[in-house]
Design a protein around this nucleic acid. Structure first.
Lengths: 99, 99
DNA sequence: CCTCAATATTAGCTTTAACTAATATAACTT
DNA sequence: AAGTTATATTAGTTAAAGCTAATATTGAGG
């Protein structure tokens, strides 16, 4: 591969991985692997304060890893990137299998 | 999964991903996908200075993502973690396919 | 032994990520 | 309209990652 392209591909991949490299975001994504969840439901699963969760959700939205739908005051999050599903399944196998 | 375990699994996964989340390290690992490489050979492939490359190699060694073998003054690096091969192949598909 | 080539390490600086605390917005409920 | 629940945002601080520049180590060859 030509060097300029190799560099820019690795920068994209770096960015992608960094957006994933956080325990709170991983727990959120893992929870969403099972299906749609409201913020309150996520707060039950993930041991963080509400503002911190909200900040991580904002990042996941900006990365377009997740999408949302509103129903009244409740906002439901779901996975929106097939690459995330693939990576999360791999990571699940590495770190969470046989539990 | 029990909450304490979920947290510790996500911390492990976070750590694992962070060690991967760097363009230089990704280029190194990508190069090593094709086989063993000396530091000098890696320097030809990866656009960084020698000390920077060496720092990233140290991190990859500590993570045990790579292993080394010495031959005279030359040190050869190779992939040493099957999880890395799997993730790199996935990332290659996401970011480098059809080039 | 002295020098050169290959590789590694350390210190200092800058940038980026993540947390806390406080506050804001938006939509139901009475 | 006022209160309450659900969610988001912002400012400020701290900690971690990455770079540059300088220097150290290790092995080979004369």
């Amino acid at each position: 591969m030509d060097p300029t392209q190799m560099l820019s591909r690795s920068e994209e991949a770096e960015q992608f991985l960094k957006q994933l490299s956080n325990k709170t975001r991983l727990m959120v994504l893992c929870s969403l692997l099972e299906g749609e969840r409201s913020v309150t439901e996520l707060l039950d699963d993930v041991p963080v304060t509400q503002p911190v969760l909200s900040q991580h959700l904002a990042l996941l939205r900006e990365a377009e890893f997740v999408a949302t739908r509103r129903s009244g005051q409740t906002i439901y999050y779901r996975l929106a990137d097939n690459r995330i599903i693939q990576i999360m399944n791999l990571l699940y196998g590495f770190f969470c299998a046989d539990d």
